[in-house]
């Protein structure tokens, strides 16, 4: 069963490595809030995201990218709330990280 993982904390507060330890090959990450700060290319967190297998889809909440003046990075699909809802339906379950 696939899981959509929701991340909302800065990767410097909630290290990505523990999230990645649980991530299955067909799971997906949706970055919201300060978790989007992982998308600064050249950051440690960004490098870590680059190590994910290509099967792991990456999404980011559009409003959080816009607020932080972050462009949609390669591999990362920006989503609005309706698309967020549909993603939840698309994966078998949702894991909201604190």
């Amino acid at each position: 069963m696939t899981t959509l993982h929701l991340l909302s904390q800065s990767p410097w507060r909630q290290p990505l490595d523990s999230v990645l330890r649980l991530l299955g090959a067909d799971d997906a990450l949706l970055l919201c809030g300060d978790a989007c700060q992982a998308l600064h290319t050249g950051s440690e967190a960004w490098s870590l995201l680059q190590t994910l297998p290509a099967t792991v889809r990456l999404y980011a909440l559009q409003e959080d990218l816009q607020a932080r003046n972050l462009g949609a990075a390669e591999r990362v699909t920006p989503v609005d709330y309706p698309a967020f809802v549909e993603l939840c339906a698309q994966y078998d379950k949702v894991n909201g990280w604190l």
Binding site: L6, S8, Q9, Q14, D34, C88, A89, K93, V94, G96
Partner: peptide
């Protein structure tokens, strides 16, 4: 429910 979605953290 078909989906449980938990919101926590920041």
């Amino acid at each position: 429910a078909d989906r449980l979605v938990c919101f926590g953290g920041d």
